[in-house]
């Protein structure tokens, strides 16, 4: 990897100005970091203040009549189910597609394909929702019916299957399609940055293409892949409109082929416009819970990344 570096000869720049530049620059970047701190603290404070009445309220006053925990529990489960389905589908496909673009496809194809995938991240979630409800859901009905008839003994696939196709499974698939571009686009950038020397060394030792990818590309890219999955998960967890339009919500059930379940973000979006008083703080408290879920998920991801730190370029 050779990079043309154009700098003036050392010494032409007065060391005082250089030092000032250094401190200004580091000061600026520190300030930016602290600003993010401040914003996040403000958001958290806002959430806590607005959600506070919910935790003090009598259980009977909360929606469902059995306290906040009973109300939020099915929503947490629903959110996790949708995100897990989305990740299970999108992660392998997203990474493989990124590999296709970076290492398999001829350059003539890979550039436009990468471009199109980037574009897909921009399609508004309303459109994905509308597409999911009108095109995908009806198309999946035969599959649901078949699954419930032949694999109905598994609780996830117990029937009778929904006749509109607007189920948790469909919502998960739509979410998967929405987060696919995030995983692909970020992984692709990292795959292409793999040091050329590593790749060529592997090939020179007689490795097949897959062995080369496994031994030089994937280890190098692993933290980045995990980062991209986390970003994608963040989007899947917080996605509102697509789920709100696709899912026919209901009480918590195990079957993914029947209408039922609900996610936190969709619950907020659906009920917020008509909410006031306690209901409003309930919904914001639900937002706070979603926030906490992301926190936990990210802590886990951080722990995983920390184990592969030695592969980072800037160690």
């Amino acid at each position: 990897m050779s990079t043309t570096v154009s700098t003036r000869k050392p010494g032409t720049e007065s060391s005082a100005a250089g030092r000032a530049g250094d401190s200004i620059f580091s000061g600026l970047s520190l300030a930016a970091g602290i600003l993010i701190f401040a914003v996040l603290a403000a958001v958290a404070l806002f959430l806590l203040l607005q959600a506070a009445p919910t935790f003090g309220a009598a259980p009977a006053d909360v929606t469902g009549g059995k306290g906040f925990f009973t109300y939020i529990w099915p929503l947490i489960v629903g959110t996790l189910i949708a995100s897990v389905i989305a990740l299970l589908i999108a992660t392998p496909i997203g990474i493989l597609v990124a590999l296709y673009i970076s290492h398999y496809a001829p350059a003539k194809i890979s550039n436009p394909v990468g471009y199109v995938i980037d574009l897909l991240a921009a399609i508004p979630s309303v459109i994905y929702g509308a597409w999911g409800a009108t095109v995908l859901a009806p198309a999946l009905v035969p599959l649901f019916t078949w699954l419930s008839e032949h694999a109905g003994f598994i609780p996830f696939f117990s029937g009778p299957a929904s006749q509109t196709g607007k189920t948790m499974f469909t919502a998960g698939v739509v979410l998967a399609i929405m987060i696919l571009p995030i995983i692909t686009s970020m992984s692709r950038e990292i795959f292409t940055q793999t040091p050329k020397l590593h790749e060529e060394a592997a090939l020179a030792l007689g490795a097949t293409r897959w062995e080369m990818i496994r031994m030089s590309v994937l280890p190098f890219a692993r933290p980045g892949i995990i980062s991209s999955i986390m970003l994608a998960l963040g989007r899947a967890l917080g996605e509102t409109m697509a789920v709100a339009l696709v899912l026919s919500s209901g009480p918590m059930i195990a079957s993914l082929l029947k209408s039922g379940n609900q996610t936190i973000a969709a619950e907020i979006a659906l009920n917020f416009p008509e909410a006031y008083g306690l209901r409003l703080s309930e919904l914001i408290a639900a937002g706070l819970v979603l926030f906490l879920i992301t926190l936990v998920v990210n802590m886990i991801a951080r722990a995983i990344i920390a184990r592969y730190k030695e592969f980072s370029g800037a160690n």
Binding site: G33, I36, F37, V39, L40, A42, V43, F46, L47, Q50, M230, L231, G234, R235, L237, G238, T240, I264, A265, I268, A269, F272, I284, G287, L290, F291, I293, T294, L295, V297, N298, M299, A301, R302
Partner: peptide
């Protein structure tokens, strides 16, 4: 470390909450 962590957390802000904020 703290900033990294909080940036991660920020990715999980549901978009409607950002609007409300």
């Amino acid at each position: 470390k703290a900033i990294t962590f909080f940036v991660d957390v920020m990715t999980g802000i549901p978009s409607i909450v950002a609007g409300l904020f």
